[in-house]
Write a protein that binds this DNA or RNA. Structure first.
Lengths: 177, 177
DNA sequence: TGAGATAGCTAAACGATCTAGCAATCAATC
DNA sequence: GATTGATTGCTAGATCGTTTAGCTATCTCA
């Protein structure tokens, strides 16, 4: 592992711009709306999520693209390379190489398509699925736990708020008309 | 813009594994805790955040690393290349080239360090700072708006919940003892 | 049966990182 | 003031993961 890789192990990843960088004097004169602690918390969750993805990648010995491929295979079930390429938004050539890597480390294998001899099917291995969920369990279990501690009323408050945040993102991503 | 790039414009990015892939029959026999709608909403926020980062990168004509560099420069103020390298967890060689790219498109410039002639200082340009905040405003403003609509009680509920989620991530990222 | 499209792959090119190493500079010590 | 060790930022070549271009095999449709 390179020196930079060793260092990354202990660092928080960069905080994403979305939900804005921590506001500093350097806004270039732009007055910014303020979300207070909640804005800071949402930013921190995004930062921690990125760190967790990297942790997961290391635990499973895969890079970011290969991890994304595994996530698709686990959530959708076996996929053809062209379907996987579409999900990952990379070319089919790159997808071939992603699949090569996943096969090489035991995360997936190729099978012939039952009716279309042009196609193959990429299947996640049982061991990979188990290892992935095992690595995810602290997070999934923790979020389930803190969610299930909420009263019905508090759950509705949180759900309504998160729905509003989703709406903000969706509108921010709409092309201007 | 390549065909794959054109396609990415319209796609949602891959859903991150953290907060778990959408649970499917393919859990390999692993029983998973369930966070219901709140879990799905948190996943969607992470996915939308990634999409927004990409949107921001396109709006500002920078790749992911360059965007991260800009975020650091805006939130911390001018930085030396070695400081920037540490923030980005890339080598100083790679950082030199990131700075080259930012300078080339008008996002930053290099200045001499006032007291240490080994060092330079990377300064974001006013135009870049303005453009960045302008691109961020729909998100920042939207989140501020939905946050400020909460009653004091609801705000506390949301803040407590988000603090719990942050705690879950932190514990999930702790090395095992 | 032939034409057009799809699938998955290979090869070469490209972009962004890496490591190794360099010259200039700084601070501490003698 | 000279020397030594460390730091800074850069260059050059190597590596990795993607791209585009193009290929053969296969499928569907008229």
């Amino acid at each position: 592992m390179s020196r930079v890789e060793e260092k990354r192990k202990s660092d928080s990843p960069v905080e994403p711009a979305s939900l804005a960088p921590a506001i500093s004097a350097n806004t270039g004169g732009v007055a910014l709306p303020d979300s207070g602690l909640i804005g800071a918390q949402l930013r921190e969750i995004l930062t921690l999520s990125t760190a967790f993805e990297r942790h997961l990648g290391r635990a499973l010995s895969v890079n970011d693209t290969d991890l994304a491929a595994m996530e698709h295979l686990i959530s959708h079930g076996p996929l053809s390379p062209s379907e996987l390429a579409r999900h990952l938004t990379i070319s089919t050539a790159a997808t071939t190489i992603v699949i090569d890597r996943l096969v090489a480390v035991g995360h997936a294998h190729r099978e012939a398509h039952p009716h279309d001899r042009r196609k193959i099917v990429v299947v996640p291995t049982p061991a990979s699925v188990r290892a992935t969920f095992e690595a995810l369990m602290p997070l999934i279990g923790g979020v389930a736990s803190v969610t299930n501690e909420l009263s019905a009323e508090d759950r509705r408050t949180v759900t309504d708020f998160l729905a509003s945040v989703v709406g903000v993102y969706r509108r921010a991503l709409e092309p201007p008309v």
